[in-house]
Write a protein that binds this DNA or RNA. Structure first.
Lengths: 116, 116
DNA sequence: CACATATATTGACAATCATCGATGAATTGC
DNA sequence: GCAATTCATCGATGATTGTCAATATATGTG
């Protein structure tokens, strides 16, 4: 969607108050929904968790495929979704692509949901 | 899904550590994904926001339909999703059904995402 | 250059979902 | 009891999505 380009997660951080503090505008609701949709999948949540737990805080596709029990194209697809949403970075070194969590990305989304 | 009954948001609160602290089990990933999926919709985010901002912290369907720009069945559908996921309570008084935010429900999901 | 390995992309398919109109159920007021 | 109002449910439809097999791309090795 174009909303991902319009409001990546970096801009989401300072876009607005937590959703229970003041009414969400239509645009902010849509961009927050896009960010949450990227998280709302079991495989992607496990990917984030496994990347964070991995040595050096990064992992390649080959590290994830087998423990996830998913095909390589499917894992690549999920990784792309997470990168596009701003939760992961991708750095290619040699034949391998290493993914790491964008610091603060999860916290900023959490901050929009929390009421305290 | 049956997962909603298996792990409603109350149990999610104490189910596990934040997702970046330790690897998510398959089951926890699935139940967290269900909880997030209920939030990952612009209309539902706006509903939560509008309910929280409404007088007496509760609102009926009739309060939401027009500002959302959605049909009454669609609004009722979204409300049901949010109630089933544990974010809203429903109390019927007379002809009206009033919805209010379940205290702490959003915070518990936010707590699972936050890394600090 | 040929080959092997790691990853990305494409195309297809089944499943899920957001939405609406029509209808049903419950309550209030006359 | 009847009409009006509020909300829930049903059925249908178009759009999105998760998944995989097949293929393409890129990098390293001999």
């Amino acid at each position: 969607m174009t909303l991902t380009e319009l409001l990546p997660i970096r801009d989401l951080q300072s876009c607005c108050a937590p959703i229970t503090r003041e009414p969400l505008s239509v645009l902010n609701a849509e961009s927050l929904a896009v960010s949450l949709k990227a998280l709302a999948d079991p495989a992607r949540l496990r990917i984030l968790s496994m990347v964070a737990a991995h040595a050096d805080k990064e992992a390649c596709v080959c590290d994830l495929t087998e423990p996830l029990g998913l095909s390589q194209p499917t894992v690549s697809h999920h990784l792309k979704v997470l990168v596009d949403a701003g939760y992961l970075t991708r750095s290619k070194r040699g034949t391998w692509a290493y993914f790491a969590i964008v610091p603060g990305s999860l916290d900023s989304v959490a901050g929009l949901l929390a009421t305290v």
